[in-house]
Design a protein around this nucleic acid. Structure first.
Lengths: 217, 217
DNA sequence: CTAAATTCTGGCCATGCGGTCAGAAAATAA
DNA sequence: TTATTTTCTGACCGCATGGCCAGAATTTAG
């Protein structure tokens, strides 16, 4: 079962075979570990296969190519993060303020990365190192557009409620996402830094940046 | 004159020969144009030489290697930017507020890039694509540390004067630099966006994020 | 048990890179 | 002009990669 049949749909008549699922999961795990360990640039198919204890050709057999494998790695981590954030939010019983939503967004993602450093490392390696054949980054700024949209929706809610001052929501979204990304990048270079404290400070920063100007000002 | 003698000092007894200076400048210019045009990944020595109308070996003759060439490209653009910022600041006649310094920093750099798009493109290509043999980024987060230090000095001044609220200066510095970087990245992907307007909005953002809380709040 | 399909192996290949080199060409010195 | 130094050319090398494939091994079907 080569994986070229997937483009015609999620799965053919039957799902992937047992061994196929197991192998794919194993290879994805090995890819995450390898990328986090030696960096994306050195994570050749040969190295990933070596870590998985299989032959290089097996990866080509189960995945259309390195591109699909890396894509699946990102998908898996994203799903993991989203689950974590959703779990946090569903504990809320009443409608939160826009400020609380933004704060929780920052703190929850930071908490996840604090507990999944390998995932963070793999993700950042892929984001900075994964290129298409022309050398363009596969996860450049444009790939953040959906995130920007989500953030902007929250901003507009806050502005309509009078929680937030008027500001350009796109600039705020790009800046906030950039600040979060660099928080992680900074943490990778300064592992001794308290990530949770950083995240709280960052939440404060954007609370001040967004909130409505008090009348007596 | 191979360039390996440079490590022993800036110049030997005499400076570089006439033709040497001209060639180096020409090659650096060709490198900037090539990197901005085809991206760092596709800017091979062969391509750069082709654009300069010379043979590939000439680059190896005048530069120790690709590393030195790229380094010189970055140096030249940095010098250019710094000159531009300094020219702006020396027009001031009186001591500025910390708020004004930060705003000018953002607006001036943005103005420079608005007028030197090719330089911006080359810089961002190098920052994201230039790796050492192990695949680690040569201009990663750690290379921003000097910038962080400068920003933090301004923050502390503002805090001591009561202009700014108390906050973690390192977090603020990382976030501001991240926001500026992504402003340019966003602009590269959305050239129709008014960069000056974006920069003003960003200055507002950090003005609100840093300023002291008004008493009646 | 035999046949067929699936899964795996390990070597091979084309590609493009940065760097090197012997010798040609050009500039400079004598 | 001739000798010497500087500068340039274009071919060549080693290297690592992702992908490919013929055939072996294994599992499943009949």
């Amino acid at each position: 079962m080569r994986s070229e049949n997937k483009p015609s749909g999620q799965k053919n008549r039957k799902g992937r075979s047992f061994i196929e699922q197991a192998r794919r999961a194993q290879i994805i795990d090995a890819a995450i570990a390898t990328i986090a360990d030696v960096g994306f640039a050195n994570a050749s198919l040969a190295r990933i296969a070596e870590r998985a204890g299989i032959s290089k050709g097996v990866i080509s057999y189960h995945f259309a190519g390195k591109d699909e494998l890396v894509q699946k790695v990102v998908d898996q981590i994203y799903t993991d993060v989203a689950d974590s954030v959703v779990a946090e939010i569903t504990e809320w019983t009443e409608a939160p303020t826009a400020t609380a939503v933004l704060r929780t967004h920052i703190l929850t993602v930071a908490a996840y990365m604090r507990d999944h450093r390998e995932h963070l490392k793999a993700l950042s390696e892929i984001f900075t190192g994964f290129r298409d054949p022309d050398g363009r980054s596969r996860y450049g700024v444009q790939s953040s557009d959906p995130i920007y949209d989500s953030l902007e929706a929250v901003y507009r809610t806050g502005q309509e409620r009078g929680e937030f001052r008027p500001f350009d929501t796109r600039v705020m979204a790009v800046s906030q996402q950039a600040a979060i990304d660099h928080m992680f990048a900074y943490w990778e270079n300064h592992p001794e830094h308290d990530l949770d404290a950083y995240a709280r400070e960052l939440a404060d920063l954007f609370e001040h940046a967004t909130r409505a100007i008090p009348p007596g000002s």
